[in-house]
Every structure is written in C-alpha cells, then in structure tokens.
Amino acid sequence: MSRRYHRKSRQFMIGDTLTIPQDKPDIEFLLRMTAVPTIDKATGADKKVIFSGHVLVTIEYVACVPDGTQPIHFVSFEQPFTGAISHRSARPDRSIHLKGLMEVQELQLVGPRQVKTSLQLKVCSVKLVRCRSPLPTHAGEA
C-alpha cells in the first residue's frame, strides 16, 4: 500500500466570481482554466499545522470583438486560502513541508466580464522534522 494514504490532509473548496480587467476584451466563450496551488506559509502549533497560500488561476478565452477575428486572450488571478490540519507530531519547533493538490476545477461564465470558479483543493502533510536543516520550498501540482 502506498504511503500517501497515511498522510494527514485537509480538503476544502474555494471559489469566487472573478472580473476580467478593463484592458481585456469581453468573453465570447471560455476555452480552459488551469489552477496551481502554492503553500506560502506553514507553521506548527501544539498538534496542529496552520497554513496559508494561494491558487494561481489562469483562464484562456476567445474574445468578443466587433471585427469578428475572435482572438484568444489569457488572464490570471490569485485566490488566497488558509487552513489547519490536526497532526499529533506538529510542534512549533518542527519544520513542516506541505503539498497542495487540485482535486476538482469548475469554471462557469456568469457574464461577458465575469467568471465563477469552484476549486476543490487538498493540502497534505509530507514531512515534519526538527529544524536542524531547512526543507525545500512547498510544492503544488495542477
């Protein structure tokens, strides 16, 4: 059996209605969305890991322009998140390494300048060690 199933984790939803910046044209239809989570900070407390980060959301769409050329445009947003994981080995003197995984990504066009996102994110504890040597930066996967 894989060790991954024994890790402590927290799964939650984040979502928002994103507005296209004024320097970009209106949306005719959506092509795709990618979302990559990044853990910015993780600290240990007594039997708890507290973390914060953001999800970089990139949207590719076909623009609604009057000349009918339908150019493709990209826009990106950062959606912040915070959370905590109960972990019996968590202490303030421990160095903590977490990993963020995207479980589900949903995108819905609300209007010509607004897009609603629903993201299901899973944050897993990878390693808790004493602070003798620094760990690599936190990882995220699309």
Rank of each mutant, 00 (worst) to 15 (best):
D93G: 07
E103I: 13
L109F: 00
E60W: 02
V62A: 08
S52T: 10
C124V: 10
V110K: 08
C124Y: 10
V36Q: 06
V104I: 14
L31K: 12
P66V: 05
K99P: 00
A90S: 15
I72G: 00
F77Y: 15
P80S: 09
I50T: 08
S86N: 13
I14G: 07
M1R: 11
Q114I: 01
E78W: 02
T117W: 00
T19F: 06
L121H: 03
T117Y: 01
V36K: 10
L121V: 12
Q79E: 15
L135T: 05
D93T: 12
V75K: 00
D16G: 02
L128Y: 02
D26L: 05
D67C: 08
M102D: 02
H73C: 14
P71E: 04
G111V: 00
L135H: 03
V75M: 03
P37K: 02
S86I: 10
P37Y: 06
D23Q: 10
S95K: 07
L101Y: 12
I27T: 03
R32W: 06
Y5E: 14
G15S: 07
I14W: 04
G68K: 04
V129D: 13
E106Y: 04
C131A: 15
V115Q: 02
M102C: 09
I72M: 05
E28Q: 11
I96H: 01
F81H: 03
R3K: 14
V65W: 03
P92M: 10
V104K: 15
C64V: 00
F51Q: 02
E60S: 09
V49P: 03
P21M: 05
L30W: 01
I59F: 03
K122T: 11
R7H: 08
I20H: 03
M13W: 15
L18C: 13
T34R: 12
I27V: 15
V55D: 04
A139S: 11
Q70D: 09
Q120P: 02
K127M: 09
L31Q: 13
E60N: 11
T69C: 04
F81D: 04
T117V: 15
A63D: 03
V57N: 04
E106M: 09
C124G: 01
V65P: 04
H97K: 15
M13D: 13
Y5W: 13
R7W: 09
K41M: 11
